[in-house]
Write a protein that binds this DNA or RNA. Sequence first.
DNA 1: CTTGAAGCTATAGTTGCTAGAGACATTAGC
DNA 2: GCTAATGTCTCTAGCAACTATAGCTTCAAG
Lengths: 146, 146
Amino acid sequence: MLTIGKLGAQAGVKVPTIRYYEQIGLLPEAGRSAGNQRLYGRKALERLAFIRHARDLGFTLEAIRDLLSLSDNPEQPCVAADAIARAQLAEVERRLARLTALKAELERMVVQCVGGKIADCRVIEVLGDHSLCSTDHRHPESESSP
Amino acid sequence: MLTIGKLGAQAGVKVPTIRYYEQIGLLPEAGRSAGNQRLYGRKALERLAFIRHARDLGFTLEAIRDLLSLSDNPEQPCVAADAIARAQLAEVERRLARLTALKAELERMVVQCVGGKIADCRVIEVLGDHSLCSTDHRHPESESSP
DNA sequence: CTTGAAGCTATAGTTGCTAGAGACATTAGC
DNA sequence: GCTAATGTCTCTAGCAACTATAGCTTCAAG
């Protein structure tokens, strides 16, 4: 049996994060020791490693919740899991495209900066005037995690 | 003079977001009409467009705060602005590298899925066992906005 | 003059954690 | 056996960067 600290160390997840996952129902409530400390077995470790790995791959907690409930029913068809993974892949591809455009624009910006006064600075100037941009990097369509 | 709605429409920023920017001090407090409604001039529009553009390029509000105060002092040297832009470029490049690795892993995952039962699903299996991965996509080093 | 859109304030919710306070449990060294 | 150092407990609040809601007032068109 593992205490929460050992579990976290083995799975690569911080202790408060584990408690948070329990709180939102991603992990089942752990058994407790005589002194009220959480104790975990191998199954909990596997489940937490699954979550950690999926987070590393950028899945949201909501998607992970679905994937976990799928993995809890091994007899069901796997189309749903496949769909979640494909959606995540599509999301990653959209972000890649967007970041590539941003990179190009930022490069243009810093390359043009010749290092004089702010009044002559291309960085400030370009930020103030979108028409100086080459690509259309508007409409952020959510850039967030991850 | 523009009402907050017109300003938002012109700059491509939602009305509550403008009020939020004012609240956190990114925009100065706007003048008010007789009926206590905010009124904006050309300068406010330029400043908001600057913010919007920088957000589109992924700068944090904190970085934008710095860029704005730089642009308010046009006689200062522009190294600071350049540094902020370069830092943002480096950040974008790190995210690109990471997303590229994620994309490869996700592709491997979905390609291997043959569509049977969950018990045989590669997606679930790979998520449960990191050693099945080809790349080391661990240590997220903050994937967040944008 | 009325109606509907747009504005106002203030508060709470989102995602995925992270940090802190103050109290109890466990373990290592002596 | 004792003490000190960790580790764990609960609870609350905070982060970014907004978004949404409620309940009100003001404005512009017909």
